[in-house]
Design a protein around this nucleic acid. Structure first.
Lengths: 131, 131
DNA sequence: GTCTTCTACAACCAATTGGTTGAAGAAGGA
DNA sequence: TCCTTCTTCAACCAATTGGTTGTAGAAGAC
């Protein structure tokens, strides 16, 4: 259903087994069987997890006889960090501005009010990804 | 089912509408109705999305009469960036080491082989979160 | 050739997700 | 008081997810 890149990446990492697999692939490449060994789920289940990671672009696989070594693709992390950093920075900037406003208000001895909500009619992005 | 913090955070951001909501809350606090307005889904659906974001700790809500203004909690982003940066760094370091190995091999005129897979019996974390 | 190993595919199942509608609670305004 | 607004809760539904088992293909070992 949700088929955009960021959704696939975040969704792939929303599972402890898959994050664990990423952590282990960060140490070195591994085959499906090696990756499945520590877990008490079937190899097929791990194979499905790897397909999710592969579809998200976090993992690529080569061929070595009948084995399919899995390799972690670090570049995809940039996509996430760019998204995260953008909104973290915006939120932190806004926090600093709120601090300034509160300081100014206390100068004027105005009582502390609720945090401001955005005025209703104000324009903002409609639908779609905040790319 | 998956109830650890990182899974909830990544899972919450694995949906375009929820990422869009985060993007808009980075600009300023907003009520459920304001947040629901741009989408062609029901207010109840957006309320559910906000509950997911709240459970993940990405959003907090105050009270203003019958309204529930939503506020973005930027600190949670740190949890993600710490996780991402750790494994990105490991993967990049490994990539650099591989580069060095390849360079050394070419010095010895050894033919290029497959990337190495981790030896089978090698210890690694068993189950649970790579915290 | 046959056997074994490693992986993927298909069908199935229970639980979760993301949406709906309808009703109800909470709080201000008439 | 009653009415309206904003939000949540409950029940329901279709699609997805994360697991299972069984089967089959691909490739080395015998």
């Amino acid at each position: 259903m949700v088929d955009d890149r960021l959704s696939r990446v975040f969704g792939a990492l929303a599972d402890p087994i898959r994050r664990d697999i990423v952590a282990r692939l960060a140490v070195g490449d591994a085959t499906v069987g090696q990756l499945a060994e520590p877990y008490d789920v079937s190899v097929q289940a791990v194979s499905k997890h790897l397909k999710v990671l592969e579809d998200a672009g976090l993992v690529t696989r080569s061929r070595d006889a009948q084995r399919r070594p899995c390799h972690l693709e670090a570049e995809v992390f940039d996509l996430m960090t760019r998204w995260i950093e953008r909104y973290r920075r915006a939120a932190e900037d806004r926090f600093r501005r709120l601090d300034a406003v509160l300081a100014e208000m206390s100068d004027d001895a105005v009582p502390h009010t609720q945090p401001r909500t955005r005025p209703h009619g104000q324009p903002h992005k409609r639908r779609g990804e905040a790319s």
